[in-house]
Amino acid sequence: MPEPTHALAEQFDDLEQQRQASTIGMWVFLATEVIFFGALITGYTEYRASYYQAWAAASKHLSVVFGAIMTILLLSSSFTMAMAVHFARLGGRKRLALCLLLTILLGAVFVGMKFMEWHDHYQRHEVPGMGFEFPGPNAREAQLFFSFYFAMTGFHALHMIVGIGILAVLTGLALLGRLAPPRHVPVDIAGLYWHFVDIVWIFLFPLLYLVDLHHK
């Protein structure tokens, strides 16, 4: 079967070379993202080691149930994303669009819940730098915890929003039939990104929500 030339960018010799280049390119990008979030996790690790009691107390101000539900939502969205990649490779146009839409929906609910949570913190004066209040002697260290909480979940939510935007574009392209094989590679690449954002949350959930829950 002759390869459709319009699917192949000029600088590549064949589609397999192009696919591998895109895949490796995304993985290299994700390696940079690991360090980007990693710098935050490094800071988190230092302060958690230094101020364990205060951070445990501050962590109890987050809702574990909320966090767990959000985790479940995001894991499910990774599943629908994996299914989208699966259908993209098979060339199922409608099923691809459906899976992408489900992924967007789950992701959007996640971001919505995140905003609700932030709003609660705002009302309880738990936003650092904006009239932060915390009962007990460790307000200073608790503010540090919440600074990291907002930085980590904020950068994560930003990545979610970018991901939702990318998936929305892909849904449109899928409906127009522009992602039929061999032009399905963008779905693969977007999938890698989405799963990565999921993995970040897999770590954020225990780091932020599950510190020292057994002590009342």
């Binding site: 800071g43 230092e46 302060y47 730098g129 904006m130 260290e141 503010q143």
Partner: peptide
């Protein structure tokens, strides 16, 4: 926001 992630007055570590 004046949150003091690296400010020792607010518990932060400049060395970080």
């Amino acid at each position: 926001l004046h949150i003091g992630i690296f400010d020792p007055r607010l518990g932060g570590d400049p060395l970080l």
